[in-house]
């Protein structure tokens, strides 16, 4: 009965209130948004403008800034081999670790899919490396485990392989970081698992009737239906990988060594800004990073038309 009353009453009553509210809500919205707005202006937009300005200056926190135009950027490209090295290291890290991580995540998600018993427990166990992997503790463990007399080499010695020190040999040090990153495939796996649930079982039934094999089903059903999820994972993981810092810092003890083989972009930026106090240069590097990430995101979005299929036609 009360429900009836409501439906009869509401349209007229609500209309009046709604127009009144529309005028009043600017003030109340400002109240709710005030902390965010303060942060946006003082801690995001203001600093962004400041760092853009600093990127055209020679600035250390000890002295006031001096305008030098594009000098920081030309130095980067022409006179700073370490900058080029940091770009190289970061690109290798991003383009090797992200695809490997996603392939591994997808493989395990497929293995766990199909209503297997104990899915919850397996999912938990496979997530543990991701849960713990970002910490300093695990990075230090990695450093010790892959070191000359570490766990891995002891295992290899048991089967008679004389292995190098994976951390202090510049040929392999970056790959020990990549391994650490791939090890943390858990959150991509969880996203894939929830994506796989969206694949309508009828698709598989229909294709089995048509005589498609497992590989065919994977290529023509699973991958296309999953492509938006893959796309999302690629974007998120790429953005994160470009900014990776802690693991490289701990494993090289802040140096980016040996021989700058793990000098990730963030690590070099940190050294420039906070060890050498070249804050103008570090600001310029920060903006180059923004441009790089922006460029790759755009390229990925551009390429998405070719390989990402949306069920609703991309609306």
């Amino acid at each position: 009965m009360s429900a009836d009353l409501m439906t009869v009453d509401r349209p007229a009553g609500m209309k009046r209130r709604k127009t009144k509210l529309r005028y009043n809500q600017n003030g109340i919205a400002l109240l709710f948004l005030s902390p965010w707005l303060l942060g946006l202006v003082c801690l995001t937009l203001g600093p962004m403008a400041a760092s853009l300005y600093f990127s055209f200056t020679d600035y250390s926190i000890l002295e006031s800034s001096r305008w030098i135009g594009l000098d920081n950027f030309t130095t980067m490209l022409t006179a700073d081999p370490l900058f080029i090295q940091s770009l190289k290291v970061t690109f290798i890290f991003v383009f090797v670790s992200v695809p490997l991580k996603l392939m591994f995540a997808l493989a395990v998600a497929l293995l766990l899919n199909k209503g297997i018993r104990g899915l919850g427990i397996y999912r938990t166990v496979y997530y543990i490396p991701t849960l713990l992997g970002g910490s300093v503790a695990i990075a230090m463990l990695w450093r010790k485990m892959l070191g000359g007399d570490g766990l891995l080499n002891q295992l290899l010695a048991m089967v008679g392989i004389q292995a190098p020190d994976w951390v202090s040999n510049p040929k392999y040090s970056l790959y020990s970081l990549i391994l650490l990153s791939v090890w943390q495939f858990g959150s991509s796996m969880i996203i894939f698992l929830s994506g796989l649930k969206q694949v309508p079982p009828e698709y598989y039934d229909a294709s089995s009737v048509d005589g498609a094999g497992k590989v065919g089903q994977f290529l023509h059903i699973t991958l296309p239906v999953l492509s938006p999820v893959i796309f999302f994972n690629v974007i998120m993981q790429t953005i994160t990988a470009f900014q990776s810092f802690t693991q490289a810092f701990i494993i090289s003890n802040g140096s980016g060594g040996p021989v700058n083989s793990t000098l990730m972009y963030s690590l070099y930026l940190y050294k420039k800004g906070f060890s050498f106090f070249q804050m103008g240069y570090a600001s310029a590097m920060a903006w180059v990073l923004v441009l790089l990430i922006g460029l790759f995101t755009l390229l990925l979005f551009g390429s998405s038309k070719l390989w990402v299929h949306y069920e609703d036609g991309g609306k």
Partner: peptide, 18 residues
């Protein structure tokens, strides 16, 4: 702001807090 790397605000924030 979600997509923005923290590096781009870091140095001015440091100067501000300093």
């Amino acid at each position: 702001t979600i997509m923005l790397p923290l590096h781009v605000t870091l140095i001015p924030r440091y100067i501000l807090f300093n």
